[in-house]
Amino acid sequence: MSDVTITVDGRSVAVSDDATILDACRDLGQDQPTLCYLENLTPVNACRVCVVEVEGSRTLVPSCSRSAEEGMVVKTDSPRVRLSRKMVLEFLASSVDLSQSTEEVHSWLDQYEVDVARYGPQVTGAAPRDGRHAGHHAIPTGLTAETVDQPVKVDNELYIRDYAKCILCYKCVEACGEDAQNTFAIAVAGRGFDARISTEFDVALPGSACVYCGNCIGVCPTGALQFRSEYELRQEGLWEEDEQTVTRTVCSYCGVGCNLELHVQDNRIVKVTSPMDHSVTNGHLCIKGRFGYDYVQELGDDLASTPIDIVLKRARSG
């Protein structure tokens, strides 16, 4: 594999010829904001928050998927780049509930001086969006800014889907599909602003092809998809991420050797993830590895005494 040399913000860097511009930036210690990009998924370059300016290119290019080419001159902080990133973040912040997005996302909102007020007051308390028909929409009054606000979907014991928090990054669709689970229970349906993540005919998850591997939740950057345990604890104000320990171990079920990260709060497993950089799982698990831990924390009536146990027990009973 030969190297190519590119220039990023005036600094030269040599990378392998299968590297992206983002890889080159990271090699230089200059990480770029990303939302739809994840190491274990195929880039869809849909969010456009990672765009950079490449000399000779008419438009900005997504750094997450564009290959580094010999001699490329890249700017990551030009006025054009800053404006586009600001606008992408502003568009999302004005239309989606980002309150449970990662800390990084919030730091970008500050960094790029996002101002959602200029779009007007946001529409809240909206009805479900699943029946909208491509090519038709209600004509706006201009008095409010449309959002994706909609009711939370709670239809099973293990997940919730809060699409008011969905930025449509496609990660869950990819993880459910060819990039990992190959179950294809969800897809993007509808078109334009009314595009949404959906099962066929919006059937509830228990009627869908979903196999509850949780790999969609593992890749969701905004909290739109959550484990029931996390959701219920957050609802009760008991979710304390700072107090949690994360321990890596091996799944107790079949012989494949999947690595688990047990998120433990008050000696209770409250979430299970998998390391993305491990070659067995690449961050993905099955239903047993993801959820089959309750047997080490039986929450019988006599044991379910602490607030956290009471919530976990309720979450489990659906």
Partner: peptide, 28 residues
């Protein structure tokens, strides 16, 4: 454009809505 945007990328998916809203505000 709001109707015909495929919805894949954020600039167009939300931008076409915000553009239409902006014109609606002006009309009002």
């Amino acid at each position: 454009f709001r109707d015909e945007s495929c919805g894949q990328c954020v600039p167009c998916r939300v931008g076409t809505v915000r553009q239409e809203e902006l014109l609606a505000r002006h009309l009002n």
